[in-house]
Amino acid sequence: MITRTVMETPVEKNPHGVDARKVYDTEHATMVHITLQPGESLKKHITPVDVAFYVLEGRGVVEIGEERRECGPDTLVESPAHLPHRWTNEGDRPFRVLVVKVPRPTGATRLL
């Protein structure tokens, strides 16, 4: 059995400049825990695989393609491959989301 806590997992350097921690990474899938502080956001980007986001804490605004929606805890958001997307924390508390990429990306994420 392998266990790890999010806070013990190192922050990975990323083009968004936010707290992103890869908590699971196999040949089949990748999971990243992201924390956005108030006012922080991801840069709009495109991934080569489908992505599922599970909101853990706080409220964030997700943009996928032309759609924009505010989401709170226990919300699952699906983002198909090749569509521009990003998260923004417009609130006054930390926002935490679990990102699941399936299958594990073999190509690069493209910033817009």
Score class of each variant (00 low, 15 high):
Glu8Gly: 00
Thr9Ser: 11
Thr9Tyr: 14
Pro10Cys: 11
Pro10Asp: 05
Val11Tyr: 13
Asn14Ala: 03
Asn14Leu: 07
Asn14Cys: 10
Pro15Cys: 05
Gly17Trp: 08
Asp19Phe: 02
Arg21Leu: 04
Arg21Asp: 03
Lys22Tyr: 01
Lys22Glu: 13
Val23Asn: 08
Val23Glu: 08
Val23Met: 10
Val23Phe: 08
Tyr24Arg: 12
Tyr24Leu: 14
Tyr24Ala: 07
Thr26Ile: 11
His28Lys: 14
His28Val: 01
Ala29Gly: 09
Ala29Asp: 01
Ala29Tyr: 15
Met31Ile: 11
Val32Ile: 15
Ile34Ser: 10
Leu36Tyr: 05
Gln37Glu: 06
Gln37Leu: 09
Pro38Phe: 08
Pro38Gln: 06
Gly39Phe: 07
Leu42Val: 02
Leu42Trp: 04
Leu42Asn: 03
Leu42Met: 12
Lys43Gly: 08
Lys44Tyr: 11
His45Ser: 07
His45Ile: 03
His45Thr: 01
Thr47Asp: 08
Thr47Glu: 14
Val49Asp: 10
Val49Gln: 06
Val49Trp: 10
Asp50Arg: 00
Asp50Phe: 11
Asp50Asn: 14
Asp50Ile: 04
Asp50Gln: 05
Val51Gly: 03
Ala52Glu: 11
Ala52Asn: 12
Tyr54Cys: 03
Tyr54Pro: 02
Tyr54Trp: 11
Tyr54Glu: 06
Val55Arg: 06
Val55Tyr: 05
Leu56Cys: 05
Leu56Ile: 06
Gly58Glu: 02
Gly58Thr: 03
Arg59Lys: 15
Arg59Asp: 01
Val62Gln: 04
Glu63Ser: 09
Ile64Met: 03
Glu66Phe: 00
Glu67Ser: 13
Glu67Tyr: 09
Arg68Asn: 05
Arg69Ser: 13
Cys71Ile: 08
Cys71Lys: 08
Cys71Ala: 09
Cys71Ser: 07
Gly72Ser: 09
Gly72Arg: 09
Gly72Met: 06
